[in-house]
Amino acid sequence: MPYLNDRVLDLGLNVLDAEADKIAVCNAEPATFTAANATNALGSKAFSVGGAFGSPAARSGGRKVTSTAISDGSITTTGTASHWAGLDTVNSRLLVAQALTATQPVTASNVFTLGAMDVSLLGPA
Score class of each variant (00 low, 15 high):
Val111Thr: 15
Thr68Glu: 11
His83Asn: 11
Pro124Asp: 08
Ala18Phe: 09
Lys45Ile: 04
Ala41Lys: 15
Lys64Phe: 07
Ala52Lys: 05
Val106Ser: 03
Leu4Glu: 15
Val49Trp: 01
Ala108Lys: 00
Thr107Ile: 09
Thr107Tyr: 01
Leu100Arg: 11
Asp6Arg: 14
Thr34Lys: 13
Asp72Trp: 01
Met117Ala: 12
Leu95Met: 10
Thr77His: 09
Ala69Val: 01
Asn27Met: 08
Ser71Phe: 02
Ser71Asp: 06
Lys22Trp: 00
Thr107Arg: 07
Thr103His: 08
Gly86Arg: 11
Gly54Ile: 03
Ala24Leu: 01
Ala36Val: 02
Leu100Pro: 12
Trp84Cys: 00
Val90Asn: 12
Phe33Ile: 08
Thr80His: 06
Asp6Cys: 11
Glu19Cys: 14
Ser44Gly: 09
Val111Arg: 14
Asp6Asn: 15
Ala20Tyr: 05
Ile75Pro: 09
Pro2Thr: 07
Arg7Asn: 14
Ala99Lys: 13
Gly86Lys: 09
Val8Ala: 14
Pro30Asn: 03
Gly79Glu: 03
Thr101Gly: 15
Thr103Arg: 09
Val15Leu: 11
Gly123Leu: 03
Leu94Ala: 01
Lys64Ser: 06
Val111Ser: 12
Asp72Glu: 05
Leu114Thr: 06
Asp72Arg: 11
Val119His: 12
Val15Thr: 14
Thr77Glu: 03
Ser48Cys: 06
Lys22Cys: 02
Ser82Cys: 08
Asp10Glu: 14
Gly123Glu: 05
Asn91Met: 08
Ala18Asn: 14
Thr76Trp: 04
Ile23Phe: 02
Gly123Ile: 01
Gln104Tyr: 02
Gln98Asn: 10
Gly54Thr: 07
Asn91Arg: 14
Asp72Val: 08
His83Ser: 00
Thr107Asn: 00
Phe47His: 08
Phe33Gly: 02
Ala125Lys: 11
Asn5Pro: 00
Val25Phe: 01
Pro124Arg: 03
Val119Gln: 13
Ser44Pro: 05
Ala46Phe: 04
Val96Ile: 13
Phe33Trp: 13
Asn110Tyr: 03
Leu114Gln: 07
Met1Gly: 15
Ala46Leu: 04
Leu121Lys: 09
Phe53Gln: 08
Asn14Glu: 15
Ala97Ser: 15
Asp6Leu: 13
Ser44Cys: 02
Ala35Thr: 09
Arg59His: 04
Leu94Thr: 02
Gln98Ser: 13
Ser44Thr: 01
Thr113Gly: 03
Ala35Ser: 12
Ala99Gln: 11
Pro2Ile: 06
Ser44Leu: 06
Gly43Val: 02
Ser71Gly: 06
Thr80Lys: 10
Val49Tyr: 02
Thr66Asp: 00
Ala38Tyr: 02
Ala85Gln: 07
Thr101Trp: 05
Val15Met: 10
Lys22Val: 01
Ala69Glu: 07
Ala102Asn: 12
Gly79Arg: 11
Asp17Gly: 11
Gly61Glu: 00
Pro2Met: 08
Thr34Gln: 15
Lys22Gly: 04
Lys45Arg: 13
Ala125Gln: 14
Leu122Asn: 15
Ala58Arg: 12
Val111Asn: 10
